[in-house]
Computed example of a mutant assay.
Amino acid sequence: MKFFQTFVILALASSHAFASDPSPLQDFCVAVNDPNSAAFVNGKSCKDPKLLVMADDFVFTMFRNPGNTSNQLGSKITTAFVDQFPGLNTLGIAMARLDFAPYGLNPPHIHHRGTEMLVVVEGTLHVGFVASNQLNNTLFTKVLTKGDVFVFPQGLIHFQLNVGQTNALAFAFLSSQNPGLITIANSVFGAKPPINVDVLTKAFQVDNKLINYLQAQSWFDNH
């Protein structure tokens, strides 16, 4: 009996561990910043679906215009995650528009809660992701052109670089309403308060002057 109980507990725990966003238990749950709301789903309260929800809650218009790529990275990522698009709440999906100037970069980053599928609409992108230590940190990379699709598995470091001489445009589809974002350089060298220099010098096997230099930089966020 104890074995059976343990098995059930482990099975239930595994089902939650392998799940992405929870399956919705209602037609929709348009997010609202109302701490007094009776319904609280996955970190977001819900509008009353019979009284407050309207068609505008299911429309996102921020993809109409190109993002401003006049920055040190030469890229701009416009996200339609649940924080920007409340109608996505509980639906387990999100999108992003990626604009690139010539040779613009979306630097190495992670979406720790969602897999990303990227489709190139204009231009030529060099893309790739790095497998985990278990798979010897193997790099998987391709050059994509208009109409090509590439998938970045959940939680793995990945990037996109415009290798063309013209602007590039892509759209990303993600398997979570809030896939999360960790930009590697920003997180490691731009942490507040900063990570102990001794930790980083040993981790990267460089001297502390280089670490001090990197921590002194202003790490730009292209989102």
Rank of each mutant, 00 (worst) to 15 (best):
I93L: 11
I93T: 06
M95S: 12
L98R: 00
L98S: 07
A101T: 03
A101L: 02
Y103K: 14
Y103R: 14
G104D: 04
G104Y: 09
H109A: 03
R113L: 15
G114V: 08
G114C: 11
G114Q: 01
T115I: 11
M117L: 14
M117Y: 09
V120G: 11
G123C: 10
H126A: 14
F129Y: 15
S132H: 11
N133D: 15
Q134E: 15
Q134R: 10
Q134C: 09
T138M: 08
K142Y: 06
V143G: 05
T145G: 13
T145F: 05
K146G: 06
V149H: 05
V149N: 02
V151W: 04
F152Q: 03
P153D: 11
P153F: 10
H158D: 03
Q160F: 07
Q160V: 03
V163D: 10
T166R: 11
N167D: 08
A168C: 03
A168E: 06
L169S: 11
A170N: 01
S175P: 07
L181G: 09
L181K: 11
I182K: 12
T183Y: 10
N186P: 10
S187E: 04
V188A: 12
F189N: 02
A191H: 13
P193H: 07
I195R: 02
I195G: 08
N196K: 06
D198I: 12
D198F: 08
L200A: 04
K202I: 08
K202G: 03
K202A: 12
A203R: 10
V206K: 00
V206W: 05
L210T: 09
L210F: 09
L210Y: 12
N212W: 00
Q215V: 11
